[in-house]
Amino acid sequence: MKLFFLAILICLISCSDSAEQEKHFHPLEGQTMGTSYHIIFEDVKESKISNLQVDSLLEAINQSVSTYIPSSIISRLNEGDTVIVAQENSFETDFFMKNIKIAKKVFDWTNGYFDPTVMPLVNYWGFGYTKRNPVENIDSAHIDSLMSGIGFQKIYPLFSRPIWHLPDETEIDFSAIAKGAAVDEISQFLINKNINNFLVEIGGETYTRGPGRNGEGWVIGINTPVERAASNDIFDKILISEKAIATSGNYRNFYEVNGQKYAHTVNPKTGYFEQRDVISATIVADDCATADALATAMIASGLQFSKDILANLPAEIEGYLLYNNGSDSLLIYQTKGMDQFK
Rank of each mutant, 00 (worst) to 15 (best):
P134I: 09
I8E: 14
A291N: 03
I220M: 08
F174K: 02
G180T: 02
I10K: 09
K45M: 09
P27G: 11
S241I: 05
G319M: 04
S160T: 13
V200C: 05
E169I: 12
V106F: 07
R209N: 10
T290Y: 08
S66C: 03
A229D: 00
I69H: 13
Y272G: 01
V135F: 11
A246H: 02
S56E: 12
R276Y: 03
L294G: 05
E201P: 05
C11P: 06
N78S: 14
F114H: 07
A285N: 05
S327A: 10
A103S: 10
Y113F: 13
D173Y: 09
E256T: 11
N123F: 12
R209C: 12
T110R: 04
L239G: 00
E205Q: 10
A181V: 03
S90M: 10
L52Y: 09
N250P: 04
I234N: 03
Y124T: 08
T67D: 15
Y207L: 05
V44S: 12
T82N: 04
L313T: 09
G210R: 09
T265L: 11
L199S: 07
N258S: 14
V200T: 04
S160V: 06
N324C: 09
P167G: 04
Q340V: 13
F127C: 09
Q334I: 13
F273M: 12
W109N: 10
L190T: 02
F174T: 00
G212Y: 11
I172R: 03
A182S: 15
I238H: 05
N223E: 15
Y37I: 06
E169M: 13
D81T: 01
T170G: 02
G259K: 07
F254E: 08
V65L: 05
D173S: 12
S327Y: 05
L199I: 15
D339F: 14
C11V: 15
S160P: 00
K2A: 12
F254S: 10
S248M: 00
S90N: 06
S18E: 15
F305Q: 13
V200D: 03
L57H: 00
W164S: 07
V257Q: 13
F198M: 06
M147H: 10
F174M: 02
D173F: 08
A176N: 05
